[in-house]
């Protein structure tokens, strides 16, 4: 496979995009791919919009996903999917967590949270949306939401079933959360 695949994980600071991308990139490396990942640190802890970019293939040069080139975008928060829509490749897939986090201007009443985001996205591109937090909650802990989304991402990418994702999940979470997160990964994958 010489073609480079591009993935964007977007969300709000503190949602766990980093753990998801860590599991993803180590899995890909062990499968023999060249992998690069880029994220911008800084004020992300303070409620800002965050994006992690992952690229993999036989040889990857740039660590940055360009506009119109993401094969899959996983949005941990709904409005973030819309913010990064122009990064999606023609025919690419969106995995969207149906979950809202109010930005400060909405909270202080200076702006309104846009309505009808999922309808807007679905009218343009291939969208899989679900409430990842609820899926995780049913498994025992809403915090495993990020790994549910990771499972859905791996499925959307396709062709990565040979990777031992259970082992990667286990290696990257505390032992007492290993079972929960493995279940979360599979729940996301089966959606």
């Amino acid at each position: 496979m010489s073609e480079v695949k591009n993935i964007l994980l977007v969300g709000v600071g503190g949602q766990g995009t980093i753990l998801a991308s860590k599991i993803l990139t180590t899995g890909l490396m062990k499968a023999g791919y060249d992998v690069k990942m880029s994220e911008v640190h800084g004020m992300s802890q303070r409620g800002g919009s965050v994006s992690t970019q992952v690229r993999f293939g036989e040889k990857v040069y740039s660590p940055i996903v360009g506009k119109g080139s993401a094969d899959v975008i996983v949005a941990f928060e709904k409005m973030e999917a819309l913010r990064y829509l122009d990064y999606l490749k023609q025919g690419g897939k969106m995995v969207v967590n149906d979950f809202e986090i109010n930005p400060l201007p909405v909270n202080v009443g200076a702006a309104e949270y846009p309505e009808g985001i999922l309808e807007e996205l679905s009218s343009k591109c291939d969208v899989l949306s679900f409430k990842a937090g609820e899926v995780a909650k049913e498994l025992g802990n809403p915090k495993a939401m990020n790994v549910v989304l990771l499972g859905a991402l791996v499925k959307a990418l396709g062709g990565l079933d040979d990777i031992d994702w259970d082992a990667e999940v286990e290696a990257n979470v505390k032992p007492k959360f290993a079972e929960l997160n493995k279940k979360a990964f599979h729940a996301g994958y089966e959606l």
Partner: peptide
């Protein structure tokens, strides 16, 4: 690229 007319609200850090 895909485009949208919907307005996205900024997330200034706080």
């Amino acid at each position: 690229t895909y485009t949208t007319d919907k307005q996205v609200v900024a997330r200034p850090p706080a």
